[in-house]
Design a protein around this nucleic acid. Structure first.
Length: 419
RNA sequence: GGCAGGUUGUCCGAGCGGCCAAUGGAAACGGACUGUAAAUCCGUCGCGAGAGCUACGAAGGUUCGAAUCCUUCACCUGCCA
């Protein structure tokens, strides 16, 4: 499988593209330049952005020139969400987010070699642009009649939320990025999530009008589980790529717990596994599901990609120790220490109630729900179910005198470290 | 600027003076089952041990008593200027 388009298609990374035949041809003719934008709406990138990074990675490895754009200016405006108006971020916040994202992106692409990826910030070419010039040079090419037909805009216009002029203008800015990169770098392909289609086409139209040239788009599908829900939420929180926002342990666990029905497709999307390897893992899911070989491979591969091999090894060992059979008391101090260091936790003093410990350690967010959890039989201490709501942590509960493992539900663990 | 409608818990959405911490749905969480999966069934779902406290855009007011009535403000929507 040498054809990049075929490969992306097999991996389930192609949702929609402009003129597929023309794009295939362009890709086959030789290296082209493409870009994908990331808006600094948060101090990190998340699961959804990971899909885009993986796509860029494939393109770079196939010999194409990749531009990674961080939206220092578009982030100040805000991409219209179909549901509601965004709250504007301050310039300082946005700049800080840009800086974080620029470093975050480094491991996914090769910025040095002989086909280096390029990192750009659209603030560089929009900051000095005056409103008048922008309206004259960019705005003149846009028809409001078309702009209001885009899904996100249309939805907002119909809702009682409305839309600000600021967000309405977003597509102009993003379109201008593509035009700029087309002029500066000869960029002729933009990739992005399928929900971005409306914004992406803005650039294609703009280039067509301003330069009379046809350029390409390629979008990735929204990844959903068997029930049609978006992936990328763990415990109601986004799965972030930054270790300080989603720990490598939580990150690994998220993928380890992917439902059977979805592992194969995620393996294709996120790992470099070949069709043969994926087929073999699928077979194992069907025949020996309890081994969860596919989930383990998926979790290990992605964690390695995002956090590196060392972090993966640590997190795998911790998972083995904490979820392996046998009671925790049997673990030696070293293993226990390493394993629990991967867990979220908090210092807890001898004599603290289990209720307070559950709260302190972050497994529940109020003492009420801690009590509820115990009442439901959903809390355990060192893998032993806690039934007495008055139970207090004693000396002996801190294994090796240092840490007690608190569990809520089947798979949420935290460490109560002796204060 | 005028007129009309709207703002409820994570989300959607009832309530229209006491019986409302607030119907219903979704999400989420827990238990049973299994495999740290899915489906299914059962349960929970503001804070507080409790008395109680805090909540229905914000601030005041009327009332024994307000999410429900009045006033002002903010924001949103529509129509008219």
């Amino acid at each position: 499988m040498t054809d990049i388009f075929d490969e992306l298609q097999w991996r389930g990374l192609v949702a929609q593209s402009t003129d597929e035949a023309a794009l295939r041809e362009a890709l086959a003719e030789g290296p082209l330049t493409l870009y994908c934008g990331f808006d600094p709406t948060a101090p990190s990138l998340h699961f959804g952005n990971l899909v885009q990074l993986v796509v860029l990675r494939h393109f770079q490895r196939a010999g194409h020139r990749v531009i990674c754009l961080v939206g220092g200016s578009t982030g100040l405006i805000g991409d219209p969400k179909p549901t509601s108006e965004r709250v504007l971020k301050t310039k300082e916040q946005t700049a800080a987010n840009v800086a974080r994202i620029e470093t975050l992106v480094q491991p996914f692409l090769d910025f040095d070699g002989d086909n280096p990826a390029i990192l750009v910030d659209n603030l560089d070419w929009t900051a000095s642009l005056t409103a008048l010039d922008f309206l004259r040079e960019v705005g003149k090419h846009f028809r409001v009649n078309q702009m209001i037909k885009k899904d996100a805009i249309a939805t907002r216009l119909e809702s009682n939320e409305g839309i600000s002029y600021t967000e309405f203008s977003y597509q102009l800015l993003q379109g201008f990025d593509y035009l700029h990169l087309f002029r500066e770098y000869g960029c002729t392909l933009q990739t992005g999530g399928s929900d971005q289609w409306g914004n992406l086409t803005a650039g294609v139209d703009l280039i067509h009008r301003a330069e009379g040239k046809a350029v390409h788009l390629l979008t990735t599908p929204l990844l959903t589980d068997a029930a049609g829900n978006k992936f990328g939420k763990s415990e109601g929180n986004a799965v972030w790529l930054s270790a300080d926002m989603t720990s490598p342990y939580a990150f690994y666990q998220y993928f380890l717990n992917i439902e059977d029905a979805s592992v194969a497709s995620l393996l294709k999307v996120f790992t470099d596994r070949s069709p043969e390897e994926v087929a073999e893992l699928e077979r194992q899911v069907a025949e020996e599901p309890f081994r969860r070989a596919a989930q383990k491979t998926l979790a290990a591969d992605i964690t390695t990609l995002v956090h590196g091999a060392a972090a993966t090894a640590a997190v795998q060992a911790a998972s083995e120790a904490l979820f392996g059979k046998g009671d925790l008391g049997g673990l030696d101090a070293q293993t226990l220490g390493d394993a629990t260091s991967e867990l979220p936790g908090a210092p807890v003093a001898v004599g603290t109630s289990v209720v307070d410990a559950l709260v302190a350690v972050g497994l529940v967010d109020s003492r009420n729900s801690a009590r509820r959890a115990i009442g439901e039989g959903g809390a355990s201490l060192n893998n032993v179910k806690v039934t007495d709501p008055e139970r207090v942590l004693g000396e002996d509960d801190f294994l090796h005198g240092t840490v007690a493992v608190i569990k809520r539900g089947r798979r949420n663990l935290a460490a109560a470290r002796r204060a």
